[in-house]
Amino acid sequence: MANAKDIRRRIRTVKNIEKLTNAMKMVAAARLRKAQERALVARPYAEKMAEVMANLAGSVGEIDHPLLEVREEKNIAYVVIGAERGLAGSFNSNVMNKALREIGTRDPATVKLVLVGKKAVGFFRKKPYEIAADMEVGSKMNFVDIKKVTTKVRMMFENGDVDAVYLIYAKFISAMRQVPTAARLLPMAKPETQEFVKSEFVFEPDAAALLGTLLPKYVDTGVYQALVESQASEQGARMSAMSAATKNAGEMISNLTLVYNKARQAAITKEITEIVGGAEAQK
């Protein structure tokens, strides 16, 4: 049995870890709330956008736009949204594995990657795929910041470098549940048309031109939405991971304390036996 001093030292170490994971849990909880708020306020914009698109599409009739063009999927770009930091349980590896599964057995030469977050870059750097673009994420990201990436993605699609773009990110279900998801970003699904408002609107400039400026924005909104959700997911995952770590540390401390007490008891018993034995021998 280990001696009492060693055990005491281990207990102290584990207690420090417990403090640390507990603090991280608190921080993640606070950030999760913020990220959730952001995801929530981003929603009205996206919804209104979809509504306006529907109105427009209804008035234009047959829509023709490069971003809607369906081609045979030879070259594919994957936008993988990871986190900037680790210690979030299986958050990063879940997303990365989802991406690998999506890519599957595809010829690496036909795959281009757009990576968001340091962890995604770190994971794919040693893989045989071309990294077309990467960016870092911050908790204060706004809509303008992501334009660099979305513009690049749209250009790759419009130039014909790739025939489809998929978005891979962790969809936020709840603080405890995040689902790695793959969604097609481009070519866009044709917006659903709303018939009843047809031709009631005045368009400035004409409806087709408007749709042309709106479609790219719609793509950007999609990426932004995914990013905000992914951030909420990350904080949720980190919170549950840290909560589990804190619990484990607590368990470990009580186990170690038990062992320590046993060791101490054994030492005392041994001493008494020795004294009694010594006294006996004196007689």
Partner: peptide, 16 residues
């Protein structure tokens, strides 16, 4: 296409 003003019950319009 330039500044535009709107009052209540403006006709339906969409613009960039």
């Amino acid at each position: 296409e330039g500044y535009l003003g709107a009052l209540a019950h403006h006709e339906p319009l969409m613009t960039s």
